[in-house]
Every structure is written in structure tokens, then in C-alpha cells.
Nucleic acid binder design. Structure first.
Length: 875
RNA sequence: GGGUGCAUAGCUCAGUGGUAGAGCGCCGCCCUUACAAGGCGGAUGUCGGCGGUUCGAACCCGUCUGCACCCACCA
């Protein structure tokens, strides 16, 4: 406990009277955040003796501003790191951003388009300069949002994937992989975006069901003919074979022969290939090795030529009537030409099939044969899989593990070259005599006549795969690498499990001699709207977190997001829920304000258990249980349960019953009040510390006001003292139950909540005698006056309340209520009696269950007796 | 086609064998001295359908229906 030797002048509100009755986030958030940063509390010291705790930010793209999904992710990471910092770890919450190659290039190209310019008008150098300007602007916005959220990151360590140091890391790992034969250059068919004009990796292609048209075309003439079906008629110009299944009797006579390819002067062979499904269509497939990945493979197996008929913009390049048409124009033109020749044997029919689209611009992918750089993933993926298989790395929730294996165990080589301008240039130089030289970060590139660097850049995920150590200064063997690698935990969305997580695993294990980049992977869900719908700008349900933060405060936004964070599942959020969280923040504020107004204190040791009243023992028992519960949830990344447990403990128990009971104690004064004031201070102190990782601002403001301490940020995380008092918990449960029952009676009688009623309260034999005064206050019971005459006598839980309700009692309402209660109790009695008469149940059920049922039966019997008495007393 | 989940109150979701829960919403009363961003009280469910296991099933097993997502393929 904090010992105060000085007056708490450092607290923002040195007298409780300064405190407004409502929490205004805007008044405190900015001020507190700047103070935290200025004091250096978020800085991580590599020289520290403390045990490290490291989490990297999943670097946001510098394409604009953060959306509510980022706010969610940051809330989780910030909560984890704030707790660990309080626990005394040397905590690094690593900030930074991703250059996001193709995404950012597209954004800037769109900006240019508004000025009627293309990147080619600017030229490579000027364009890249322009993107850097964009990056500065967007990066500023993003860090501003992170400050608003309260992210406790080490700003001194902020990194960008295209920083000098990180670029060296990229070059170093490229060189090493190249020298190890794990990077190579090869001509293959790749996913090509004809709008972005670049190759894409397999996972950058999104497949969706598109409506196409299937046309059937006769190839060849007379007996040497067959019919193929296609959705892409225009590619027939590049056909170099027709394939049939080897066992297909219909076409056996044609295999090995050459047939005429319509609209051309070429003949093409009929080949037998097991890839063909004889059941589909006509069982004969046109083969275009240059424009279809499956056909490319068939072509390789049968040594077929590749005839490229489209350029990089998917415009037809073969001479003749189709030259210069784009693929869609060409498709109908080709069909029309075929029809004119009587080649169309079945008309177009609608056909829904899955078509690949560029994940960045949604343009339909055009498979294309080209020379690209590849990572040979075999050994890297094997290691990445094994690290999870052998338990070095665990994935939360574990259901995601199979998805991970599914991917790393079936991975194709990774195409890493992009025909873009924004990104890390491939560190390979080509010489005048066909030399190829890969240059490491510590080498000088060749300068002689005729040497030039590869013009392509790397896939943006190549550099983000290095993030857990490139941010720490690698390839330099820095103190930070030593201290903060591997990271403690990775928190990110399940949507980038393959893009990012698996690649960090591959590169981390490879670069760091088999040490995985982190030991725990926590995958969170996607933020959705309050109806569970995916957020999207076009649907109009996406939310700018700043708007909510402005309206309700950062704590409210954070708490709402944390409260929805069940492991691995999507998180719905609605403005109503943010309001509810704002109300909670306000409650925290006012409860602390109440404590201050009533002289709650954190000074001096906690009184001995013998001195504590029952309410004090109850709340301290619960407090310690909640500390343990919250710790368990934190260690298990159960943010929703943790938030809910704190919400209910704080609001229902501390801010409600304990506050109400304290009013009586405080009013009574004396030693009991003094003891209670100290306990109250303790309970609030601990509760605020527990809430701080989720709601940093309001807790900081109130904790410093309450304790006079410097900051909750650098205060110890609470520990469970082990204090438990079941008897006190039961006692207070009885008090709560009794009060609730009488309140219900009052409400049924139509009494206004504040209306005072003359009454006697007989608690003899209940063991609750000590609470009489508090209960009288809670129930608004007046001392019975001289003319007291009970009109209603209420036996509740062994106690008796006699009320003088002259003029207000509603006997009919009471009779209805009692009759209803009687029916409920009788039903309960019947159920429990039946159960206890069941021998099989008695024989097999565990004791505690049987006891519980017995208790319920006894309670039902008592209720029936009590209600009977009450009914009999009604006039 | 392969895989992983999900189906519980009006909405969004907790609840892995022992009396169905939360938040929001809804109904009634109240500015009761920390808080109306509040307080008190209340209503609301054949736990998707059908079978099975069990003394006992929202929970375990089978099956059906509907939905979501991931992967592969689609001439």
C-alpha cells in the first residue's frame, strides 16, 4: 500500500469538491496521455534487469486512417502490456507502420488520377517521392489516433517498414535466402492484375462466384473433330492442344492426331491427360498454356508450346481481326466469328463459376506467364509447421491451429516480385554479359558499364515478415534484439494468419537460428456492426473510432471493444453499447467521487480482520477473489469475460451495495467508520488498478485523486492476498436478498421508492442484527411513532418486517403477488420432492447436488408456510 | 469437393452434465444527499428439428435443416 508522507498535492483534484458530477473525457485524456509519454513510462529499456514483455503492433498500412478494427486490436494489446508493465516487466509495445506496397501505391495513383495524371507521367523517382509525402501525412493521422486511444507504445522506437534499418534487414535476409538457394528466379504462370500491372501471390487473389457464359465450339473437321466448352472463348487464339481423359472411349481415336484450330491457320494435337474430367461438359478441354494455370501444367506434361495472345493489360496481341481488343471485347468478337463459321454448336448458357480477382482493386485476374522471383517455401514452411506441432508456439483459440497447418503444410512457392514502384527494390543486379549478382546490405552494388538493378520491388509481406526483429535493429546484434526477441505474444486478426503470421514464423525461425518470433499467437475476430454484419464503407455501417471517442471518450470505446472480445470470434459493436460503457466510466468517476467526499483513505495499513465489519469482510473477500479471477482471464486472453467480471463486480457489488451499506457506517462515525473508510479506499484503489488496462484514462484520473500517488501506470498490479470470508459473503447475500424482497413488496404496494414508512424490523435469530440500521436506511423505514399500527407483517428469511401502511396498502395486489409466489413455491416443492424420491438419483448424484436439492426443498417448504401466514393475515 | 465453426430472450452474445444468464431494448415507479450518463421493481425463452446416452442434457453422441468462414477446384 502506498504510504503517503506528503499531502496528495500531486493529485489532479486535491479536494473532492473540485470534482464535477460528470466525467468529461476530453478534459483529461489528452493531458494524461502527454504526461505518460513525457515521463517516459512507455519507454522500454534494453539494459533493464527486469524480465522483458514484448508485443509488436501489427503495423497498420499507411493507406489512410485507423478503423474500429485497429482500435479493437490496440485495446487488447494495450491492456496486456499495461498489466505487464504494472507487474514489473520491462514492457515493449512496439509501434510502427507498414508501407503496404500495392495498397498504398493504388491509393496514391487514385489521388493522381484526380489530377488527371498517372504514375508514368511523373516517372518512378517523382512518384515514389509523392508516395513518401502521402506516407508522412497518413502516418501522422495514424499516430494521432493511437494517442487518442491511449496506446502505451514506445514512440522512440517507432519504425516503418521502409526505414533505412528495416530495408537493410530486408536486403540481408534476401541475400541469405538467395545464397541458400531458397530464393530463385523462374518463368511460371502467375496471377497477374491487368490494372495494377503486377504479379500477385496466391493469397492476394480473392475468388468469388461470377456469372459467366459457357459456349461449345467445334474444333477440327469431319471425323477429326470434337466439341470443347469454354467460358473464355478469346483464349482459343492461344490454344496449343485439346486434352481428353486417357480412358475416354469417345475420343480415343483422336489422341495423338492433329486437328484444325478454328479462326487460325494452325493445327493442334489432341492429348490424353488425367486432369480432364470426362464427366464435365463434353469431356474435351481446350488447352491454353499461356493463359490458364491448369493448362500451363498440362502444357508442361505434354511439352506444348505457349502462345501468348494478350499483353499485360489483357489486350489481344495476335495479328488479325482481334488485334487491340481487350479480353471482354475479344470474347464476344471471337464467338461471333466462330458462329459465322458455324462452329458454335451450343448457344451460350449462363454458368456460375469461381473467378479470381485482385484483392486490392477487384479486377479479374489474368493468369500470365512471366519471369518472377520466388521463395522456395518447402523447408521454411516445414519449420513453421513444426514449431507449432512440437508446442514451441501455441495458437489461441486452438481451433485456428488446424487452419494454420492446412496452409503451411500445403504451401506453394511464394511469388515475391511485384512490378510496382513503391517498395523494397529487389537487390539483384544484372551485368552486361548476363551476370546475375545478389547484393547484401553490407556490399556495394556493381557499378560498371551495363550493370543495372532489377526494376521490381518485393511483396510488401516480405518486409512485414521480419517485423518482430527488424524493428529491434536486426541484422545488427543490438541489445534490443537480445532483450526483446522473441516477442512474448502476437495479437492479430485471423484474417492475416497466412499473409503475415505464417510468414513471420518462417522468416523468424530462419533468421534467428530456429527461435520462433513469439511463443503465443492470439487471433482475434473482426469488428462487426451491432447486427453482426461485416463493416464496409459501401454498406455504410463502418465506424470511425474517433467519432465515438469524441462523443463518449476513449475508455468507453475501449471497454466496449474488450467486452465483445470472445476468443477468435467476430466482435459486434454498436453505438448503444459504447454509451453503456460511457455510463460505466461515469459510474467509476462518481463512485470515486463519493469515496473522496466521505473521506475514504489509502493511508496506513489495512485494519486487522478482527476490526472489520461484516460488509468490509465481504467486500475484501470478493475483491481478492476478483483479482484472482481477472488474472486468470488475462493469462487466458479472455477479454470479454475479464471485462464482464470487472463490470459486474465494480458496478453491482462495490458501487452499489457496498457504497449503500457504507453510508450508514460513515454516518455512525467512530472507529467502525474509520475502519470502513480505510477499507473503502483499499477496495477502490484495487478496483481502479484492475480496470486501468481497459480504461486507462478515467482510472488514472480517479486513482491519483484518491491516492495522491504519482500514476496508476507505474503502480503495482494487485495481487490476491488470499483473504476469503465465506461467512461474510453468505451474510451479505442474506442482507441483499432480504432487502430486495421488502423492496419488491414496497413496489407492489405502489410506494414511491423514496417514501418513508413507519415500520419495525425484527431481525432476532437471523444473525443479521448488525445490519438493522443499514437495512432500515436501504428500505426507507422510519422509526415507528406513537401511533404506529402495523397493517402488513412480512416474514422474510426468518426476519419480520411490520409496516404501518395506513392509507397506502393495496391488499389485492399483495394477494395476487402472494398467490403467484405460492404457486411457484409449490411447483418447486413438487419438483424437488420428486427428485429426492428418485432412488437412481440419490444413488448416483454427487452429494453436493443432493444437498442442494434438499436445500431447495426446505426453502420451498418455508416459503409455502410463510406465504400461507401472510395470505391468512390479509383482510 | 475438403475443413472449421455457429444456431440460447426483441437485438448482440456468455453459458462443456445438476433451479436458463448478461448488456442493450421493453413495462411500471422515482431527481431517494456520489452519479437521471442515475435509482428501485418487473416481464420476456418448447436453448434450430428429430432420435440416442444418462437418475438428470442448452451442454455428450447420431442425424436433419439453416447460416458463417477458410482452403482447393471449377473447361
Amino acid at each position: 500500500m502506498t504510504e503517503n508522507t506528503q499531502p496528495p498535492a500531486s493529485g489532479p483534484h486535491s479536494t473532492p469538491a473540485d470534482l464535477p458530477t460528470q466525467y468529461t473525457p476530453a478534459d483529461v485524456e489528452g493531458k494524461l496521455y502527454e504526461r505518460w509519454v513525457d515521463r517516459g513510462w512507455f519507454r522500454a529499456d534494453a539494459k533493464s534487469d527486469k524480465e522483458p514483455y514484448t508485443v509488436v503492433i501489427p503495423p497498420p498500412n499507411v493507406t489512410g486512417s485507423l478503423h474500429v478494427g485497429h482500435a479493437f486490436e490496440h485495446t487488447l494489446i494495450d491492456a496486456l502490456t499495461r498489466r505487464k508493465r504494472m507487474q514489473g516487466y520491462e514492457t515493449l509495445w512496439q509501434p510502427g507502420m507498414d508501407h503496404a506496397g500495392i495498397a498504398t501505391q493504388n491509393v496514391v495513383e487514385r489521388e493522381l488520377a484526380k489530377e488527371g495524371l498517372s504514375r508514368h507521367d511523373l516517372g518512378r523517382e517523382a512518384f515514389v517521392e509523392r508516395v513518401w509525402r502521402w506516407k508522412d501525412e497518413s502516418g501522422g493521422q495514424i499516430s494521432g489516433q493511437m494517442r487518442r486511444l491511449g496506446d502505451g507504445v514506445d514512440w522512440d522506437r517507432e519504425r516503418f517498414t521502409m526505414d533505412e534499418g528495416l530495408s537493410q534487414a530486408v536486403q540481408t535476409i534476401f541475400k541469405r535466402l538467395y545464397d541458400d538457394g531458397l530464393i530463385y528466379r523462374a518463368e511460371r504462370i502467375i496471377n497477374w492484375c491487368p490494372r495494377c500491372l503486377t504479379a500477385l501471390s496466391d493469397i492476394e487473389v480473392e475468388y468469388q462466384e461470377d456469372e459467366g457464359e459457357l459456349v461449345s465450339i467445334r474444333y477440327g473437321d469431319g471425323e477429326d473433330s470434337l466439341v470443347v466448352a469454354t467460358t473464355r472463348a478469346e483464349t482459343m487464339l492461344g490454344d496449343t492442344a485439346v486434352a481428353v481423359h486417357p480412358d475416354d472411349a469417345r475420343y480415343r481415336h483422336l489422341v495423338g492426331r492433329r486437328i484444325a484450330l478454328p479462326l487460325t491457320d494452325r493445327t493442334i494435337p489432341v492429348v490424353a491427360d488425367a486432369h480432364v474430367d470426362p464427366e464435365f461438359g463434353t469431356g474435351a478441354v481446350k488447352v491454353t498454356p499461356a493463359h490458364d494455370p491448369n493448362d500451363f501444367e498440362i502444357g508442361r506434361r505434354h511439352d506444348l508450346p505457349q502462345i501468348t495472345v494478350m499483353d499485360e493489360r489483357a489486350v489481344i496481341t495476335v495479328h488479325g481481326p482481334f488485334l487491340g481488343l481487350d479480353r471482354l471485347e475479344a470474347r464476344s468478337a471471337v464467338v461471333a466469328a466462330l458462329r459465322a463459321e458455324g462452329r458454335i454448336v451450343a448457344e451460350k448458357r449462363p454458368y456460375t463459376h469461381s473467378v479470381g480477382h485482385c484483392s486490392r482493386c477487384k479486377t479479374t485476374i489474368e493468369p500470365r506467364v512471366s519471369l518472377q522471383w520466388w521463395v522456395k517455401v518447402g523447408p521454411l514452411a516445414k519449420a513453421a509447421g513444426d514449431a507449432v506441432r512440437d508446442g514451441q508456439v501455441t495458437i489461441h483459440p486452438k481451433e485456428m491451429t488446424s487452419r494454420y497447418f492446412d496452409w503451411v503444410d500445403n504451401l506453394h512457392d511464394w511469388c515475391i516480385s511485384r512490378q510496382l514502384w513503391w517498395g523494397h527494390r529487389i537487390p539483384v543486379w544484372y551485368g552486361p554479359d548476363g551476370e546475375v549478382r545478389c547484393v547484401g546490405a553490407d556490399e556495394e552494388p556493381p557499378t560498371g558499364e551495363g550493370w543495372h538493378q532489377d526494376t521490381d520491388v518485393l511483396d510488401t509481406w516480405f518486409s512485414s515478415a521480419l517485423w518482430p526483429f527488424s524493428t529491434l535493429g536486426w541484422p545488427e546484434q543490438t541489445e534490443s534484439v537480445e532483450k526483446f526477441y522473441p516477442n512474448s505474444v502476437l495479437v492479430t486478426g485471423y484474417d492475416i494468419l497466412f499473409f503475415w503470421v505464417a510468414r513471420m514464423m518462417m522468416f523468424g525461425l530462419y533468421a534467428m537460428d530456429g527461435t520462433p518470433p513469439f511463443h503465443t499467437i492470439v487471433l482475434h475476430g473482426m469488428v462487426r456492426d451491432q447486427f453482426g454484419k461485416k463493416m464496409s464503407k459501401s454498406f455504410g455501417n463502418s465506424v470511425d473510432p474517433l467519432v465515438w471517442m469524441d462523443a463518449y471518450g476513449s475508455d468507453a470505446v475501449r471497454f466496449t471493444l474488450a467486452r465483445g472480445a470472445n476468443p477468435g470470434v467476430d466482435v459486434p459493436v454498436g453505438e448503444d453499447w459504447v454509451q453503456a460503457s460511457r455510463n460505466f466510466a461515469n459510474k467509476v468517476w462518481n463512485a470515486t467521487r463519493f469515496a473522496l467526499l466521505n473521506g475514504a483513505t489509502v493511508t496506513g495499513p489495512l485494519p486487522d480482520a478482527a476490526e472489520l465489519g461484516p460488509a468490509d469482510r465481504w467486500i475484501l473477500s470478493r475483491l481478492n477473489a476478483v483479482v484472482a479471477e481477472v488474472d486468470g482471464y488475462f493469462e487466458d486472453y479472455q477479454f470479454a469475460k475479464l471485462s464482464d467480471a470487472l463490470f459486474h463486480f465494480a458496478w453491482d457489488e462495490v458501487f452499489d451495495w457496498y457504497v449503500e451499506l457504507s453510508k450508514t457506517t460513515f454516518a455512525a462515525g467512530g472507529r467502525a467508520a474509520e475502519v470502513s473508510r480505510r477499507v473503502f479506499g483499499e477496495v477502490l484503489d484495487v478496483t481502479l488498478r484492475l480496470l486501468h488496462p481497459l480504461m486507462p484514462f478515467v482510472t488514472e484520473e480517479m486513482w491519483t485523486s484518491l491516492t495522491g500517488g504519482e500514476s496508476v501506470v507505474v503502480t503495482d498490479w494487485p495481487t490476491d492476498s488470499g483473504f476469503r470470508d465465506r461467512a461474510a459473503e453468505d451474510e451479505l447475500a442474506a442482507v441483499r436478498k432480504l432487502v430486495t424482497e421488502v423492496r419488491r413488496f414496497r413496489a407492489d404496494q405502489g410506494l414511491q421508492p423514496g417514501q418513508r414508512v413507519p415500520a419495525t424490523l425484527d431481525l432476532s435469530g437471523t444473525g443479521l442484527e448488525a445490519h438493522e440500521e443499514a437495512m432500515r436506511a436501504l428500505l426507507r423505514l422510519q422509526a415507528p411513532g406513537e401511533s404506529f399500527e402495523a397493517t402488513a407483517t412480512l416474514p422474510v428469511g426468518g426476519a419480520t418486517v411490520a409496516l404501518d401502511l395506513h392509507g397506502v396498502i393495496d391488499f389485492e395486489a399483495e394477494r395476487r403477488r402472494l398467490t403467484k409466489d405460492l404457486a411457484t413455491a409449490e411447483k418447486e416443492l413438487a419438483q424437488t420432492t420428486a427428485k429426492l424420491g428418485n432412488e437412481a438419483f440419490l444413488a448416483k448424484a454427487p452429494d453436493h447436488v443432493v444437498d442442494k436439492i434438499r436445500g431447495r426443498r426446505a426453502a420451498a417448504e418455508a416459503d409455502i408456510a410463510r406465504i400461507g401466514t401472510q395470505l391468512a393475515q390479509l383482510p
